[in-house]
Computed example of a mutant assay.
Amino acid sequence: MAQATQLGERRTSVDEIFDHLHDEILSLRLRPGDKISEADIAAQFGVSRQPVRDAFSRLATLDLLLIRPQRATEVKRFSSRAIVKSRFVRAAVEQEVLRRAARQCDALGAAELDRAIAAQEQAIQDNDVDAFGRLDYEFHKTLCAIAKASFAFDVIMTEKSKVDRLCILSLSKGDRMPELVADHREMAEAVKSHDVEKAVETGMRHLSRLDDTIEQISVTNANYFERETLQDL
Rank of each mutant, 00 (worst) to 15 (best):
residue 226 E to H: 08
residue 199 A to C: 15
residue 183 D to W: 03
residue 186 E to A: 15
residue 189 E to N: 11
residue 188 A to Q: 04
residue 187 M to E: 11
residue 210 L to C: 02
residue 193 S to V: 07
residue 199 A to L: 12
residue 190 A to V: 01
residue 183 D to P: 08
residue 180 L to Y: 10
residue 215 E to A: 08
residue 188 A to N: 01
residue 174 G to D: 06
residue 180 L to G: 02
residue 186 E to D: 15
residue 225 F to Q: 00
residue 175 D to Q: 09
residue 178 P to Y: 14
residue 216 Q to L: 13
residue 181 V to H: 01
residue 216 Q to D: 15
residue 203 G to I: 08
residue 207 L to Q: 13
residue 216 Q to M: 11
residue 195 D to K: 13
residue 199 A to T: 11
residue 199 A to W: 11
residue 207 L to G: 13
residue 203 G to W: 13
residue 206 H to A: 04
residue 178 P to W: 04
residue 217 I to G: 00
residue 195 D to H: 13
residue 209 R to A: 10
residue 185 R to K: 15
residue 183 D to R: 05
residue 190 A to Y: 05
residue 198 K to C: 04
residue 183 D to F: 13
residue 195 D to S: 09
residue 203 G to L: 09
residue 182 A to G: 15
residue 185 R to Q: 15
residue 225 F to H: 01
residue 211 D to A: 13
residue 204 M to S: 05
residue 200 V to M: 09
residue 215 E to M: 08
residue 212 D to E: 13
residue 189 E to F: 03
residue 193 S to Q: 13
residue 191 V to I: 12
residue 208 S to T: 06
residue 209 R to V: 10
residue 213 T to Y: 02
residue 184 H to D: 09
residue 216 Q to G: 04
residue 212 D to C: 00
residue 216 Q to C: 08
residue 225 F to E: 00
residue 190 A to D: 05
residue 185 R to C: 06
residue 198 K to L: 14
residue 174 G to K: 03
residue 205 R to Y: 10
residue 192 K to P: 06
residue 189 E to I: 05
residue 216 Q to E: 13
residue 181 V to E: 07
residue 195 D to W: 00
residue 190 A to I: 00
residue 219 V to Y: 10
residue 222 A to S: 12
residue 196 V to N: 06
residue 222 A to W: 00
residue 209 R to G: 03
residue 213 T to V: 08
residue 188 A to R: 07
residue 207 L to K: 06
residue 191 V to K: 03
residue 225 F to Y: 02
residue 224 Y to G: 00
residue 224 Y to R: 00
residue 192 K to F: 11
residue 187 M to C: 03
residue 178 P to F: 14
residue 176 R to T: 09
residue 209 R to Y: 11
residue 189 E to Q: 15
residue 189 E to K: 03
residue 218 S to L: 00
residue 184 H to M: 07
residue 191 V to T: 10
residue 176 R to P: 01
residue 183 D to S: 08
residue 215 E to T: 07
residue 212 D to P: 02
residue 211 D to N: 14
residue 224 Y to A: 00
residue 219 V to R: 14
